[in-house]
Computed example of a mutant assay.
Amino acid sequence: MIEVILKKGKEKAVLQRHPWVFSGAIEKVKGKPANGEVIRLIDAKGAFLAYGFYNDQSRVAVRLLEWNEENPTDDNWFRARIAQAVKSRAELLSSGDTDTCRLIFSEADYLPGLIVDKYADYLSVQVLTSGIESVMPVIIDELKKQLTPKGIFDKSDTSSRAHEGLGESFGVLAGSPPPELVHVKENGITYGINIAEGQKSGFYCDQRDNRRILAGYVKGKSVLDCFCYTGGFTLNSLKHGAASVTSVDSSALAIETLAQNITLNNLDAAKQASVKSDVNNQLRKFRDEGQKFDVIVLDPPKYAPSRSALDRASRAYKDLNRLGMLLLNEGGLLATFSCSGAMDLETFKQVLAWAALDAGKQVQFINQFCQPEDHPLRSSFPEGEYLKGLLCRVY
């Protein structure tokens, strides 16, 4: 096995089980490993540190897998990791009111670059690293053994694969292709998921718990659901007694699927209105029209893909939340989220404080939102904590 030698003094993070080794920490590579090949990482004195995937095209040159030298990362190692991840979600899926979740969450499940989402009897897979790409036959075989899905679909059509020297990949990996809409259950609500054409892997199951929490605040209230996608917060609000829900998204497919989901759940369509529009433009239009709401949900896409984008993203988050605050009735609730891993919760709170100042509002933080149990946070990998949110009362 090819050895990668760290520079002197660069082993601390590795010993603390952080799974990333950046290219600048490497002193020497003995040999020419192929991208995605498993290598032995050793310190400057020649002592074994860990096994990991190597990639000379990525800023993260080694993605670590195993720290025990006596436990080689062969096919059985990968099978055991998959089985462990599936088993850890068993209780979540046993309730009967939820049959969709994230089965494998990349580094958090010790499989860097592998995302697997379960949508009823189908699996949606994203492969983001060359190492995982190299062992996909084993992964697919083990997923079939563990879950016997009707089909496994590849949604690796993301530009981030270019950082690993990979092209986009899309299509059926095993079994049959999914139908146009796969019906799944989450918290007792049925959703139609378009795996092939939907955003990301098809659905945002990371908001499952937060949808349920917010539903406890909406009875008899007027709700504005921004970046609504296929209606996670909208459907929960209608089911739990909201007086009205206005849903805004720029995607025509999302708006169409939301309408189908309302019918699918026998909810009162008369209480809901959809607006296909850019959210920021629509918020300004609502402001100019003098519209007000009791509860507003702001769940935007990732504004800060890296720390270098944090200043620009902070300005975007501030402006978005300022507009939201201006549209709330006195004492109304703002449920606001960031899925940018580069923005921590304290920074997000500061951004909201700036937004409140610009809006001339007073804000109380009354609840915090986070990612659910199927998106676990690995203790040695704080970068895995990406989703955070705050429930704010605005005066």
Results as ranks from 00 to 15, higher is better:
T347Q: 11
V182D: 00
I2H: 14
F286G: 01
C392I: 13
A13V: 00
R315Y: 01
A242W: 02
E133C: 03
R287T: 10
Y191M: 07
A304R: 13
F22D: 07
T129A: 04
N329C: 12
L345W: 02
D299K: 02
R287D: 13
H163I: 15
K10E: 03
C339I: 10
L111Q: 00
L320S: 15
L41F: 08
S274C: 12
G360R: 04
V21E: 10
P376N: 06
G341Q: 12
L357H: 04
L143S: 03
L238P: 05
L173H: 10
S308L: 09
S306F: 00
R315T: 07
Y303P: 11
T100I: 02
I82V: 13
E197N: 13
V351M: 04
G188M: 05
L264A: 10
P301R: 08
P112R: 09
S237E: 03
V14K: 10
P72V: 15
L41R: 12
R59G: 03
Q282L: 00
G36P: 08
I39T: 08
S379P: 07
L390D: 06
S222I: 00
A83L: 13
R81F: 03
A25G: 05
L258Q: 05
R284A: 15
F105S: 09
A242I: 02
S169M: 07
K302V: 11
L235T: 12
L93Q: 01
T234L: 03
R284C: 14
I139A: 02
D278A: 02
L147N: 00
P376F: 08
E330A: 11
Q282P: 01
G46F: 04
G290F: 09
Q282E: 12
Q126N: 02
F48H: 11
F348S: 06
G188R: 05
S250R: 06
D157F: 12
Q146H: 07
Q282R: 10
C101S: 08
G290C: 04
T234H: 09
I195R: 05
